[in-house]
Amino acid sequence: MKVHLYQIAVSLIALFMIYQGIENFIKGKKNQTLLKLFTRIIVWGGMAAIAIFPDLSATIAHIIGIEGNINAVILIGFLFIFLLIFKLLSTIERLEQDLSAITRNEALKEIKK
């Protein structure tokens, strides 16, 4: 099997990122949770796996059926809707927090006098 330079580079970067995640988690650094560690391992591990075994992406595409142009268009549409929902939920969350802050300030006004 012929190994390309990008495969080594991506694998090394992925290894470094995963190592850093594990180190942060063990040291209990700020905002480090098990879920974040898992996400890091899945994302970087997935990139390394695809870099080392390029045929893997074709196999995955074949399994989930994203091979034709129409499928790609539908997938992009789904991604767009997903991003839109994510953005909407983030905005609602921010507004909820603003509402709580206003309600809190109003409640505390009397005792702040």
Binding site: S100, T103, A107
Partner: peptide, 26 residues
Amino acid sequence: EKALRHKINRGKGGATKTGIEAAKIF
């Protein structure tokens, strides 16, 4: 005066935080 009121319902967490903020003021 230590009976405070949220004009709209914000949930247990929101109310507890308001109470803690009030306690800090006192």
